[in-house]
Simulated scan of single mutants.
Amino acid sequence: MDDLTGFQRDLLYVIVGADQPSGQDVKDEIETYYSAEINHGRLYPNLDTLVNRELVEKGQLDRRTNYYEITDHGREQIEQRRKWERQYVDV
């Protein structure tokens, strides 16, 4: 997970915190956090990176809508990251 961008980590956190969010759901949530519009050209290639690294699985809700779900590997990576962060910031 150390080779992910901050944006990719944020996407991963949004996905793990939701129940099979669609790409639009992820976009809406990340836009709220960033207080800025995120275009499709930024969002979907980064989601694909998470899928390619087997941190997230992509499924199909219908012909037009995909959903994203954290994998066990993705969950492990988040846990390791959180453990590392707690060494420095114990809130």
Rank of each mutant, 00 (worst) to 15 (best):
M1R: 14
D2C: 03
D2E: 12
L4I: 07
L4D: 04
F7D: 10
Q8P: 07
R9D: 08
R9L: 14
R9Q: 15
D10N: 15
D10F: 05
D10Y: 09
D10M: 15
D10V: 03
L11H: 08
L12G: 01
Y13N: 09
Y13V: 12
Y13H: 12
Y13M: 13
V14F: 06
I15Y: 02
I15P: 04
V16H: 08
G17K: 13
G17F: 10
A18S: 10
A18R: 15
D19T: 11
D19N: 14
P21Y: 03
P21S: 02
Q24E: 14
Q24S: 14
Q24N: 14
D25G: 09
D25P: 00
V26Y: 10
K27I: 07
D28E: 11
D28F: 06
D28T: 10
I30F: 13
E31N: 03
E31G: 09
E31V: 02
E31P: 03
E31T: 08
T32D: 01
T32Y: 10
T32S: 13
Y33R: 13
Y34A: 15
A36S: 14
E37C: 02
E37G: 04
I38H: 00
I38G: 00
N39H: 14
N39L: 09
H40G: 01
G41Q: 14
G41S: 06
R42M: 13
L43A: 09
L43Q: 06
L43N: 11
L43I: 08
Y44H: 15
Y44T: 15
Y44G: 13
P45Y: 02
N46L: 04
D48P: 10
D48E: 15
T49N: 06
T49D: 06
L50E: 02
L50Y: 01
N52P: 00
N52I: 00
N52F: 01
E54D: 13
E54M: 06
L55G: 07
L55P: 07
V56K: 02
E57K: 11
E57S: 10
K58H: 02
K58Y: 00
Q60F: 01
D62F: 03
R63I: 05
R64G: 12
R64S: 13
T65G: 02
T65Q: 10
N66W: 05
N66Y: 08
Y67M: 05
Y68I: 07
Y68E: 04
Y68M: 10
E69Y: 00
E69M: 05
I70S: 05
I70W: 03
T71L: 00
T71P: 01
D72Y: 00
H73F: 05
G74F: 01
G74N: 06
G74Q: 02
R75A: 14
E76Q: 10
Q77A: 13
I78H: 09
E79D: 11
Q80M: 03
Q80F: 00
R82L: 12
W84G: 07
W84C: 04
W84D: 11
R86N: 05
Y88Q: 12
V89Y: 01
D90W: 00
V91I: 04
